[in-house]
Each structure stands twice: as structure tokens, then as C-alpha cells.
Design a protein around this nucleic acid. Sequence first.
DNA 1: ATGAAAGCGCTAACAG
DNA 2: CTGTTAGCGCTTTCAT
Lengths: 343, 343
Amino acid sequence: MDLPKKAVTRNEVAQLAGVSPATVSYVVNNGPRPVAPATRQRVLQAIEQLGYQPNALARNLRLQRTSTLGLILPDTHNPYFAEVARGVEQIAFERGYTVMLCHSDYSLERELHYVHVLYAERAAGVIWFPATADSEPALRLADYGVPLVILDRVAPGTQAPCVLADNFRGGFLAAQHLLELGHTRIGCIARPLALHHSQERIRGFQAALRQAGLPPDDAPIVKGGYRLEDGRAAAFQLLELSPPPSAIFAYNDLMAIGALRAAHERGWHVPRELSIVGFDDIPQAAFTCPALTTVRQPKLDMGRRGAQLLLDLVEEQLSSAQAEVPLQVQLVIRESTAPANNK
Amino acid sequence: MDLPKKAVTRNEVAQLAGVSPATVSYVVNNGPRPVAPATRQRVLQAIEQLGYQPNALARNLRLQRTSTLGLILPDTHNPYFAEVARGVEQIAFERGYTVMLCHSDYSLERELHYVHVLYAERAAGVIWFPATADSEPALRLADYGVPLVILDRVAPGTQAPCVLADNFRGGFLAAQHLLELGHTRIGCIARPLALHHSQERIRGFQAALRQAGLPPDDAPIVKGGYRLEDGRAAAFQLLELSPPPSAIFAYNDLMAIGALRAAHERGWHVPRELSIVGFDDIPQAAFTCPALTTVRQPKLDMGRRGAQLLLDLVEEQLSSAQAEVPLQVQLVIRESTAPANNK
DNA sequence: ATGAAAGCGCTAACAG
DNA sequence: CTGTTAGCGCTTTCAT
């Protein structure tokens, strides 16, 4: 039943309908030339009868373009990325594109691997959620002439449009939220500050402290990974300080959850004795534990916006043909909305 | 920088290297014919110099096969599916395949849409996580001769291999776990019983009750959706019964979390006054809320096993060429492991 | 050891 | 309105 059954081709359809292969194309593509209603009918019937399904490979080869989008991201295990993937696919579907899912698994090497694969497949464009601070993948894609949109990060030396969360504002809001709850000693779980967005979140965070008249240096920072387990470890460090913080701002929700876990293990009651705020918005987490408040970030929307931007780029490039379009840098800022205390 | 830059072709490489296009192929593919070391060197250098990257479209067209796998699943918003996707991509990567991510969004129509797209793209095989009880997508794929592996469901009328969780056992274990905790009145949040796996989970659940000497009919069942919100609504129904159950077994973790939320809203304390068990294993949930225990199910592994099975099928079909291989039905049972109470 | 050439299935310009 | 034909970039069987 699933032996290498040979697919029916356009020629067979043409033969059955008694027309030329070209005519079949005109019917299938609804153009570029008109077809007499009677002929069209015969062709459609032949297609139906044979179960003809045009070969996209041949079509793409001939057209010198595909409708495939590459999506490179670290790992859908992190619900944040899964949500981004979902957003990308939604838009791709709506606009007739298809998505190739590429996990970089937080490795530059694999990002580069997929850059090559996607170019080999002549992807129409790529959406890249960088795993490291290295811009090489973007450079390579630019070199290949493949349109690119970068998510959640700026890649120095690149012209590619970015979709960014407003990291500064997110950090600011997180601190503000905790300050309003009466906390004065707040610990931070960050990533290495070399990372632009981590740095921004911390900057925003400290700005809020300063504005409240608190010395930012009072806020202990633990720099580290990005996984749940990293958050747990970082929280242990923070809780052992004297005095320990009464609140924690975590770089992402995964680590916030890790912190929550650490708190539980240490016998702290959240949120009575310790408040925790994560930067992202993981619905399950938000719903599961009323103690966990999050600064909401529209990550589904990030995927959607990224895909939209990319497809606009792709299609513009297509229509503008060889007209020398001036490069343009487009920067989209997505703002975090106010912190939501999930009652 | 990303204008429709024309890609360098094999002919240009051949010209630069002063060899025939065929020779370039032999070098690139390392066969099927040997190439003199000196020639090979010149070709490699030309490739390097021009930044040549073979066009996979042309190659696939010629070869009449691709290394693209289709993955059709409801929605990566559900971490369960995200995890499956991750598993599939892992194996695909290892074996040199690429994954097309297709969200059916729980709709048969979209499943069929993607079946067509994937066939048009001549996908080497498809992994399908059905959204409904309808087998039509499987039938269509069989008709096209596209190898298929079905996840988590049997599709009547199909020969496709399935990767199944041991739903009966999972339900059994869930009930057993709750019985050991001393519960005697346990509510169920299920999906429509027409769905094989929901039915099985309930069957297993009731079998455990029976074995414990309890009348299964005492266990109230609410049938419904699959989302967090559905679980919340179902839990409200259960909690309003008199007497209300002291424990709840939910079809999946998303609904278990919804139930947890409902309990909170009603002022119940979990797990002191109400125990909740979800069938899946969502790490965040499990970690976030120590009250939530889950029957672990290796969903990453489900994706991995599915992809392995599929690729074996694909490659076997490739090698066996036109030899009339007898159809074979392969059924893999994945067992749920013991319930883990996430302390 | 290598070159020439025939397609893979399709689109679109060129001819009627 | 429709048929014929030249490729798209590649693999591989013929030849040499």
C-alpha cells in the first residue's frame, strides 16, 4: 500500500484530457493564460480522476523560489519557544507558507548546520531565535541572500529586522511591581550580562529601584543559565544571603519556577514570605500557582509578528524584482504589558 | 544585501575548476564514480571559492525523493505536543532529515490541508498525531503511498504503525495511586469516550476501582474538551456534586491544571482537601505545584520512537526498491510508568 | 578517470 | 484559445 508508488504527472493528465501539458498548467495555476470553459472542465475531470497533485519540487525548481520558511530556535521544550513556533506557523499557514522546524539546541554549530540546510532547500526566508550572542548565522544568511528576521535579540553587524521585547521596561515593571508590594530587598536571577536582553532587564530593574530612592547595589544578582534547574540553584544562593531578599526577579519564567521550587524546598511560603516575578508569561505556570506573578510578554505575538515581517520582506523582494531597493532597517519594539498578578 | 542574488550553480563550479559538471557531482556526492585526487582538489577549491551550495530542490527532483518529514499535530501550545515535536526533530536531525511543522489546530480540515501540502512537497514520510477520530488523513496518505506513523491513536482501516501510550495502564495506575491515598470517591475528567485513548484510560481507571472492591459507577465522569479551560469547567461540575469527590483524575495535565485552578477558586486546598492526578507529565506544572501528581508518560520518547519507526520504514522502502515487500503492522506499546508524586 | 547527454516535472515565452 | 519548446539544477547512464 505504501510501496514507491509513482505519482501521476501533469503529462498523464494532459493525455487523458486530450490537451497539452501547458493547458493543464494554466488550469492548475488559474493562469497566466485563459482556458476555454469546456477545456478547463475536461482537465479538471482528468485531474480528479487521476488524483493528480502537482509536484511542488519541480514547480519550485522552475520558479526559483519556495514557500518554505525556516524557523531556527533553541528548543521547543521551553514553552516560550513552543509558543513562538506556534505563532510563526499560524501566520505561515495563513499566507500559504510552510515551516521547517530547526532546533539549535542552544548550539551555534547546529544553528550554522541548519542555515546551510535551509539555504540548500532554498527557503524563502528564515526566522531566527538566536541561541548565543554570535551573529555568524545572520551573516551567512545575508551572504546567501536569504531574508531573515531575528527574534528577541539584536545581531551586531547585521541589517536584519528584529522583533524585540522591551526588556528595559519589563525589568522596570517587575521591580516596580515588587516595590509596590513593599519589598525593599529584591534578588535578581539573570543571565550573563553580556547578553543584551539580560543586561536591559537588569538596567530597567535597577532604574526602578533608583527611582524609588533605593541603592541599586542593594539588589543582589546571581548570573547563570536559563533552565529551571539553573533558577533553582540561583535561588538557593539568594536565599542563603543575610539578610536574604524578600522577593526575586527572574530572567525568565522557567527560572522563576525553579526559584519557586527552591523556596518550597527551603520551607519558605510563597508569596507570604517570598514573592517571585518571572519575565515571561507561561500560562500554565501563571495559572497553576497563584503565587507566581509574571510580567506578561506576548510571545505568541512575537512569533506572529516575526513571520509577518519576514513574509512582507520576502514578498516585497519578489515583486520589486531587480529594482535596486535600498536596504532598510526595521526595528519593531514590543512592549511588555503591566505585570499581572494572577489571582 | 538580500536582493534576489542568484545562487551559484554546479556549472559555474565546473567551469572554474575546468571540469565537467558531472565531475563536480561526483566530488560533492563522493560517488558514485571515483575522482582523481588532483581533480577533486581543484573542484573543492572552486566550490570553496564560489561558496557553492548544491540546490536541494533540483537534487530531490532528480532523485525523486526528499529528506523532509511531515509532522502533523494539534498545537504546540500544549507542552505535550511541543515535547513530541522536539523528540521528532531530534531523531530527524540525527538521521539527516528535516521536519515540517504542521499544526492541525484540532481540525480535520487542516489535517487534510497539510496532507496535501506534504504530498505536494513529496515528503519522505509523515508523523501524525490525530486531532479527531477520523482516519481520513491516514487513508489519503496511504493512497499517495506516503509512509505514515500515527502517534497515540489507532486509526481504524489503516495499516500504519502506531506508537501508543498504555492508556489502560495509565488510568489504572492513576486510580491505584489515589486509592492508596485513601480516596474512595474520585471524579474523572475525560474526553468523549468515542476516543480510543480516553476510553482506555477510563477503563483502566474503573478496573482499579473494581479491583479495590468499589463500584465503578460511584466515580462521576465529566466528558469534555482538552484545554485548560475545559478542565476548569469540568472540575466545577464535579465539585458541585453531593457529595463531591475528594480526588480528581484528569485526562491530561492541561485539564488537571484547570481543575487545580477551579479548586483554588472554590477555596479548596489541594492536596489537603482534594487530590488531582493528570495523565501526562508537564514538568513545569509538576514542579510549580507540589500538589499536582502526574502519571508520567514519556512523550519526548513518543516523538523519538515515532520518528525512528518512520525513518526505518522510509529507508526500508527505499532499499527494497520494487521488491514486493509484504505489508507489516507494527504496534509499539509504550507503558506509562508509576505515578510520581512530585514532592 | 572523465565528458556528453538524457531526463526528473514543471512554467512561461514563443508560435501559431 | 492552445500546442511546442526551452530550460530550472541536478544525477547517472552512456560513451570515450
